[in-house]
Design a protein around this nucleic acid. Structure first.
Lengths: 193, 193
DNA sequence: GGCTGTTGCCAACACATGTTGGCAAACACT
DNA sequence: AGTGTTTGCCAACATGTGTTGGCAACAGCC
């Protein structure tokens, strides 16, 4: 390790590292944490299993690196309040169609405590923070974010994990008019008793 | 095996079978399919691991027996149409608070294809059938059931699996007025474009 | 009593897993 | 050319897994 700035020197093994990460994301998404073996990931990346250990320390470390995930939520203050729900569904659907990281995280969170913890962090921090930008009541804010998470994750769970036929066969454009009003009410509505 | 009626003879090992099943449900619910080992289940039931094999054939067979699940949906034709959503949330929350079978199924469905298949069957058959009793349009019926499943399973996933704080700290009575309108619209509403 | 089927446990097998240490080749740098 | 570091592979270890076969104790029945 160089004592001075070490972040900007490209290493010769960067390609290998990237290949491992890509294979890991694929396997974790397809098989979940325990079924995705280091040997299988290494085989996909066409390298030796011991390389994975050297570069990522352990299986947990590899998962931690592979499941780095940013919701990339847009600035909600610049969205017309009446369109918040629609913007959010569209954003989420677009965000994880084609990026298997969230599926990997979702599958792993079911059985791996560390993954569940990370999932909690992502939604508690990023989503709650976004909701807080336009919601005044701090007590309600967390609940609103939790409710949105329940519908969003339920959508992902039924569509990408369980693969319920009616949820798989429906296009995002067909889904939006159903889901958007739900999120809209969770975000800006008040429960009627 | 007796060639005649064999279903009504109680066996001496019924207590053992039941203990295994109870321990299996607990372990599958707490750890998921792969982490729940036959040895741990046998230890919980205070029995030898080989007994599990003799009575349930294999780990998959044990899971199949432990994850038998009936939603026990009420007759929806006798429910005032305007209260369908509320009745359903209340029913689901009551149904799986205290019964860990669904949690076991939910966890396992994330990584085990067979469990996912069973989950698909449960919701496709039982829920879609229930919706069909009051919904006229067959094409829409499946979609309505899928949408309800997405919110219901999302609720269970965030509350019992990921354990998002705002969803865990909320009582069923507080949850109902938020979730009920969602289900109500999925069941009887029409999407606005 | 004797006999048959059941219940239970022990020990072991075959295999897959995460993980480690050593060693050869390729590289970077003087 | 020479030296230290990095990259990669091979072989192996320790452990945990589902699963199997054999053998003792027991219950039920003639």
């Amino acid at each position: 390790m160089t004592p001075s700035a070490q972040s900007t020197q490209p290493r010769r093994s960067d390609a290998t590292r990237a290949a491992i990460l890509r294979a890991a994301r694929e396997r974790f998404a397809a098989d979940g944490y325990e079924r995705a073996t280091i040997r299988a990931i290494a085989a996909d990346a066409q390298i030796d299993p011991s390389m994975v250990m050297r570069y990522y320390g352990s299986k947990e470390g590899l998962f931690a690196a592979a499941a780095e995930f940013d919701l990339r939520l847009p600035d909600l203050t610049s969205v017309p309040p009446a369109h918040l729900g629609e913007v959010l569904v569209r954003h989420f659907l677009a965000r994880w169609e084609g990026d298997e990281t969230l599926v990997a995280l979702l599958r792993a969170a079911s059985t791996n405590p560390g993954a569940a913890e990370r999932m909690r962090g992502i939604f508690a921090d990023q989503l709650t923070a976004a909701v807080a930008t336009f919601d005044g009541d701090p007590a309600l804010t967390a609940r609103r974010a939790g409710l949105v998470a329940s519908q969003i994750l339920g959508l992902a769970f039924t569509r990408y994990i369980v693969r319920l036929p009616p949820m798989v066969d429906t296009t995002p454009d067909e889904l939006v008019p159903w889901i958007a009003p739900t999120l809209q009410r969770y975000l800006t509505g008040t429960p009627v008793s």
